[in-house]
């Protein structure tokens, strides 16, 4: 059956970032509300109140996003649409694969680094990570790579191991 234009625009509206946010909040609220079922009434009362509020806010954000999409305008409230996020630099707001590619790869590198900490220990993992991430970022000057790696490892050793006596992970060979 062919999709009606109205239905198509509603589907597109539901894919807008704000609608996805609203729907995600609704989904989180429902899942967590279900998790409160085994709790005693006293232990569940506050989380349920918080989740009910989150559910309401999620629904409100979704409705506003759908209405905004239907009217062909951005979903932000007019009164505060141009407010500057306080003291924080904002993300681009774009969701294209081209924009998300580098953050996703960066995250994979970071996860790989953290996974390696317990295997080969903090300092070897950090050296590998720094060299890898600097290369990924486009730093090909060996002096920069060596300087940053040696400088940071030295700083961490002095501050965390020597001064603060933090037992950093030594890995399987430690």
């Amino acid at each position: 059956m062919p999709v009606e234009p109205d239905e198509r625009s509603r589907t597109t509206a539901l894919r807008s970032p704000d609608a996805v946010l609203g729907l995600s909040l609704i989904a989180i609220s429902v899942v967590f509300l279900a998790c409160t079922l085994p709790l005693s009434a006293a232990a569940a009362a506050w989380p349920r109140a918080v989740l009910a509020l989150l559910l309401f806010l999620g629904a409100a954000i979704t409705v506003r996003a759908v209405r905004a999409a239907a009217a062909g305008r951005p979903a932000a409230e007019p009164a505060a649409a141009d407010a500057v996020p306080d003291e924080e630099e904002g993300a681009s707001g774009e969701w294209s694969p081209a924009v998300l590619r580098r953050p996703a790869l960066t995250m994979l590198i970071v996860i790989g680094y953290v996974a390696l900490l317990d295997v080969i220990g903090f300092f070897p993992a950090t050296v590998l990570y720094l060299v890898g991430h600097l290369w990924f970022g486009g730093s090909r000057d060996l002096r920069v790579v060596a300087g940053v790696t040696a400088g940071l490892c030295g700083l961490v050793y002095l501050l965390f191991v020597h001064e603060l006596s933090v037992p950093l992970p030594t890995g399987l060979f430690g």
Binding site: T106, V110, Y113, V114, L117, F122, T126, Y129, L130, H133, L134, G137, G138, S139, V144, V148, L152, V156, F160, V166, L168
Partner: peptide, 15 residues
């Protein structure tokens, strides 16, 4: 350059 700062920040976040 940010390409140098970003890995340093991540390592400091972790430690």
């Amino acid at each position: 350059p940010m390409k140098v700062l970003v890995p340093i920040i991540v390592a400091l976040c972790v430690v």
